[in-house]
Write a protein that binds this DNA or RNA. Structure first.
Length: 418
RNA sequence: GUGGGCGUAGCUCAGCUGGUAGAGCACUCGGUUGUGGUCCGAGAUGUCGCGGGUUCGAGCCCCGUCGUUCACCCCA
């Protein structure tokens, strides 16, 4: 009887050995600056009440209208697999009353996110992000620090071919004024129906169109930055000066568009040059109305999400991944069935002393077992037979040069440490 | 959701104008007693993505389908 194979669901990105090692390294590098800046872990559910995203991310966004994995659970509740991280963090902060303590609340998260899009290079239906949120303080210095933390994550990976683009989306008032003028401008353009519809939902979208004729037409469109209130403009100027002071280089992109509705004020994006169409490796910004919309206090917040999958692709493209295979310190081979229990025991003992120890399994020939030891990359190999078992000695063979020495088990630690 | 490329061994790929499947790497075993890397020898592995059609005959041609990949859209 032969069973059919079951394949992974379409578009999921999974990491198997040896690649998983690089993935884990990348994730660690990306988030370590946040940990050192006092951000604390938040472990959240991967599914939430659907209305959290409808309200938080925005009904007009593509993410909500056509990319969410939404289903009904057995209790008839509408559930959605999280498409992004910020809304869930805010929900948990409100629910856990973290905003009733000292501000800003500083948290980080790491995990998988879900969007039902057509898969493509760097775009998956289940993908990985790490991110941080700093909630409750509206200080341009905090904006700058958040951006610098993200930047440091990419620097940790050794990346060079990326750039940081920043802009200010202003406050609600500046946006409303701009929207009126932009709508007027766009309505005069000759657009196909799909683009027209999109522009009516969010006219800023048209700035993001890649077609040359549209780009050309948008050259003279009214720019949001020209509509910023005094407060917003001043805030943005300060963010820039702090970034300058931090030595974080950036370019101001007055036409930047973000796909999530909650962004206000400082908004930023990290773009990598070697990645093809899906070039955004991270992004974030301030979201001053979000907490209130979700039923909490009217507190401001700022955060970012970094794409672990894409950061890994970028590190591969720039060839910055360190070679770091797992190499055990000791590989133990039992010569016969009689030594198995003894060897298992010995391995546990040496592990307790803090060393990485592997055991040969499967009753292969000694030659085969040695081959396995060689491929494992172990520094030392010990073959245990009757004489070793009786004497309590171990003959350690150093694989790099083939020499071997006989030691007492009690002296093992000293040799392995050398 | 729309469009293009590609599906042959675990991996990378050959396979002529249609004549019923191959290489390299990897893997396992062996090259006399309890010691790896190199070398030599042997071995295992495929419903040629799947379904249909054309044909005496299809891995090769045609249609469909699924998967994958790239781009649009969108974004991490």
């Amino acid at each position: 009887m032969k069973f059919e194979k079951i394949a992974a669901p379409k578009g999921v990105r999974e990491y198997l050995p040896p690649e998983s090692q690089a993935f884990e390294w990348v994730r660690q590098q990306l988030i370590s600056p946040a940990k050192r800046a006092g951000y604390q872990l938040m472990e959240l559910p991967v599914f939430e009440d659907t209305s959290l995203f409808n309200r938080g991310v925005g009904e007009s966004t593509d993410v909500v209208t056509k990319e969410m994995y939404t289903f009904e659970d057995r209790g008839g509740r509408s559930i959605t697999l999280r498409p992004e991280g910020t809304a869930g963090v805010m929900r948990a902060v409100i629910e856990g009353n973290l905003d009733r303590g000292q501000l800003p609340v500083k948290v980080w998260y790491s995990g998988q996110f879900f969007r039902a899009e057509r898969p493509q290079a760097g775009r998956y239906r289940q993908f990985y992000q790490v991110g941080i949120e700093a909630i409750g303080i509206d200080d341009p210095a905090l904006d700058a620090e958040v951006i610098a933390i993200a930047d440091q994550g990419f620097k940790n990976l050794g990346l060079k071919n990326y750039r940081l683009e920043i802009t200010s989306l202003g406050d609600a008032q500046s946006r409303a004024a701009h929207r009126v003028d932009l709508m007027k401008f766009v309505s005069k353009l000759d657009l196909d129906e799909a683009t027209r519809t999109r522009s009516e939902i969010n006219p800023l979208r048209i700035f993001d169109d890649k077609r040359p004729e549209i780009k050309e037409a948008m050259q003279s469109a009214p720019i949001l930055m020209d509509y910023l209130s005094d407060y917003s403009r001043d805030h943005f100027e300060k963010v820039k000066s702090y970034l300058d002071a931090l030595g974080v280089s950036y370019t101001v992109n007055k036409r930047m568009v973000r796909g999530l509705d909650y962004y206000t004020g400082t908004t930023f994006e990290f773009v990598h040059d070697d990645l093809g169409a899906q070039s955004g490796i991270g992004g974030g910004g301030r979201y001053d109305g979000l907490m209130e919309v979700l039923g909490g206090q009217a507190l401001s917040g700022i955060g970012f999400g970094l794409g672990v999958d894409r950061a890994l692709l970028a590190a591969i493209a720039e060839n910055t991944l360190p070679v770091q295979d797992f190499n055990s310190d000791l590989f133990i081979i039992p010569l016969s069935l009689d030594e198995k229990a003894y060897v298992l025991n010995l391995a546990q003992e040496v592990r307790r002393a803090g060393f990485a120890v592997e055991v040969a399994f499967g009753d292969r020939s000694l030659k085969g077992a040695m081959k396995g030891a060689d491929k494992s990359g172990a520094r030392f190999v010990a073959v245990i037979g009757e004489s070793e078992r009786e004497s309590g000695d171990v003959e350690l063979k150093r694989m790099s040069d083939g020499t071997s020495i006989r030691v007492k088990i009690s002296e093992l630690q000293k040799v392995l440490e050398a």
